[in-house]
Simulated assay, not measured.
Amino acid sequence: MKAGNMTGSYLIRGSDKQGFLYALSVRSQDTVRHFKIFQNEDREYHVNSTSFFKDLYELIEFYKGKPVAKGLLLTTPCLKDESTGSEMSLIPLDEWERPRKEFELTEKLGSGNFSQVYEGYWIGKLKIKVAIKTISQDVVTQETFIRETTFLKTLRHRNLLSLYAVCSVGNPFYIITELLSKGDLLNFLRGCEGEKLNLDALLDIAGQVVDGMHYLEINSCVHRDLAARNILIGKNNICKIADFGMARFIKDEVYVSQSKEMPYKWTAPEALAYGQYTLKSDVWSFGVLLYEIMSKGMNPYPGLHNSELLRYLKKGNRMEAPHNCSDKIYKVMLDCWQENPQKRPTFNDLKISIDNLANYEPSEESPKHPAKLKEWLNKLKKPVMQ
């Protein structure tokens, strides 16, 4: 959609959805049209069932002469964005540092152990609303600031919080990010809007988190603090994973930390007992997060103190399913809570599981639900008035 791309401008991108490898995106007037590119048993590419191609280049050339949709011919590749910043970033990657005077804090949104988060404005060429995380400057928090901003600069995905700028001159430090209008997932689930969410919407939220975590997984990054309070919600219930203060890149299979600062009820047993974190540790945490989602914000392990948790888990105990949670969804939680990390699914496995649940476990409001289908069939049986 950037300036200079005219109708017919196109790009091919890899797809992380099940069933097709690539997607073709084409500029059409003021919108972008997206087409799935499939591959058949003969490894031929196609966007429909009439025209097949040995490679993507041949497919592109064909649709330059024949419309891929009514009145839409491919013309030239989309202009390449030379910036290496995130897609939401307003400044180049090598110019993250901005002067403090450009930012105005307005309303406090929340606080943590070392930081506070405000709604505010970035006052530059345009005055835009942003989220501003302030971190008091000392030796410990300086390491936290560097670590969190490093991750936000390095990792870019639609379901990860986007960094706009930083301010490391003066006290406190500022981390400036996109503002998600509905706040954190935990309070959202407990609020009026969260109370009205049906099963489809809850599974969509879970699926978005899995997409973001799968991206971290393939980049060998452990979040170590995956919980509903650290997922932010925006317009149309878009989810973004946030708070990378505890995140680490794993060079070996296991990252070892002796820090006692950990979210106990979201942390895997091997990390609680031995400080050992792997990519499968976040899978355990996702199981707890899925419990939060399906229970619409209930506290995990109600009535159980942190000091009792490890003993409780080592006896093979697990949380019971939330009220109205199906056996299939609860099984996903239990798979995440396997004692042996190697037996837990990967986030790629979870992507498939959540997609299948979304397809085959429709809510009562969905037209796919058996009750709705029965209602529809009954209507068909009624005689039509002439």
Rank of each mutant, 00 (worst) to 15 (best):
K80F: 03
R224Q: 10
Q386C: 11
S220P: 01
G194N: 02
G110R: 07
D282F: 08
D55V: 06
Y10R: 00
S51P: 01
L290H: 01
K314M: 15
D55P: 03
K125R: 14
E364G: 00
F53N: 09
R248M: 09
K64R: 15
N299C: 05
L126I: 13
Y22M: 03
A271S: 15
W284L: 08
L21H: 08
G170F: 10
E143F: 00
M298N: 12
I175A: 02
F38G: 05
E193P: 00
E148P: 02
G65W: 06
K129H: 04
I218E: 01
K368E: 01
Y164K: 14
G316S: 14
T134N: 03
D138N: 15
G4M: 07
W122F: 04
G207P: 03
K153S: 15
G234F: 01
F173Q: 00
G297W: 13
C336E: 08
G14S: 13
T144M: 08
L203S: 10
G275R: 12
L279F: 10
W96N: 00
K265M: 11
A227Y: 13
I205H: 02
P302M: 09
N348G: 06
N113C: 11
S162Q: 13
T149N: 11
G297H: 04
K182C: 09
T75H: 07
G297Q: 07
V47Y: 01
Y10H: 05
